[in-house]
Amino acid sequence: MAELVSFIIFFLGLYALVVKRSVIKSIIALVLMETAVILYFVSGGFEEGKLPPISDALPEQMVDPLPQALMITAIVIGISSTAVALAMYSQLHRKYGTDDWKKLMKIRLEEDA
């Protein structure tokens, strides 16, 4: 069930990237996609009744600790990349005065010419 939902959220984020023309929506969609992957990594292959990987539990009862360790990394990656994207967004907005991808592209093409 959780695997299904993570697929749905991933495609939802991708859909938003395709149809939403606002830059800030693209960043939100990116965060959604990242979260979907984290959700998949944790829930994929999970068996009912497994315990947290802390020493009170028997080894056979423990859930796989590796995805959790990796996904903590992914969360930290997520916040840093979001912060950078937001900082760029604020620069972009100040320089171009719009946050619509299509308008941005047009202005950028005029700059080139």
Partner: peptide, 8 residues
């Protein structure tokens, strides 16, 4: 101005 768009 140009590089901001390229960068993002």
């Amino acid at each position: 101005k140009q590089s901001v768009y390229d960068g993002i």
